[in-house]
Amino acid sequence: MVEQMVTIKNRAGIHARPAALLVQTASKFKSKIYIEKESDRINGKSIMGIITLGAGYDTNLKLIADGEDEQDALQALVHLFDSKFEED
């Protein structure tokens, strides 16, 4: 299992389009993907779960990947946050 903290830097936070990008990216991997916000942990392959986190600008999240391609999965997800979901 690998994990990494990320901070949401796009001004609109995690709304429908970034949530869809996260699910599309996470679904490419066999590993289980989780996103944690404070004490909430959701399935990173569930668009409804991601949206219900209510993660806005400057929110810290923990990304967790567990499985055979966990390193690649984590790297791909971190890239989405680093690129501000290609919104800004």
Rank of each mutant, 00 (worst) to 15 (best):
G67H: 06
Y34L: 14
T7Y: 01
A12G: 01
M48V: 12
M5E: 12
A26C: 05
G49W: 06
R11N: 12
N60K: 15
G44L: 04
S39C: 10
E70S: 07
R17H: 10
V2Q: 07
S83I: 05
K45V: 07
D58E: 15
V6F: 03
D66H: 09
G54K: 07
Y57T: 08
K37S: 11
Q4K: 14
E68Q: 12
A65W: 02
V2D: 01
N10T: 07
G54P: 06
L77F: 07
Q71P: 00
L74Y: 05
V78Q: 09
L61R: 02
I35K: 08
M1H: 10
Y57W: 11
K30N: 15
I64A: 02
K62E: 06
D66M: 06
M48F: 13
V6Q: 01
F81A: 09
E38C: 08
A65H: 03
T25C: 11
R11G: 01
Y57I: 11
N10D: 04
I8F: 05
N60M: 06
I47K: 10
A65K: 02
T52R: 13
V23P: 05
I51Q: 07
P18E: 07
G67A: 04
L21Q: 15
K28L: 13
L80M: 08
E70D: 12
I64V: 13
G13Y: 03
R11F: 08
Q4S: 11
R17P: 09
Q75N: 14
T59W: 02
S39T: 14
K62M: 11
A20T: 14
L74G: 05
D69A: 02
T59N: 06
K9G: 03
E38H: 12
Q24V: 01
D66Q: 12
F29Y: 14
S31E: 04
L77G: 08
I42W: 10
A55L: 07
S39I: 12
M5D: 10
A16C: 07
S39G: 13
G13N: 02
A20F: 05
D40K: 14
A76D: 10
S27F: 02
E3Q: 14
I8L: 01
D72F: 01
E3K: 13
F29N: 07
A26Y: 01
F85M: 04
D69C: 01
K45F: 08
E70Y: 06
A16F: 05
L74T: 03
I50N: 12
A12S: 11
L22P: 09
K28R: 15
A16Q: 09
T59F: 02
T7M: 10
G44V: 06
G56I: 05
D40L: 13
K32N: 15
I14F: 00
I35D: 09
L21W: 05
S27H: 01
Q71E: 13
G44E: 04
K30M: 09
G67M: 06
K30F: 08
K84I: 03
F81C: 10
V78P: 04
L80V: 07
M1P: 04
H79W: 07
K9L: 11
T25A: 03
N60E: 14
I35N: 07
A19E: 03
I35E: 08
R17Y: 05
V2S: 01
Q71A: 10
I64C: 02
A12Y: 10
I8M: 03
M1S: 10
K9R: 13
E70Q: 15
K30V: 09
G44T: 08
F29K: 09
T59A: 09
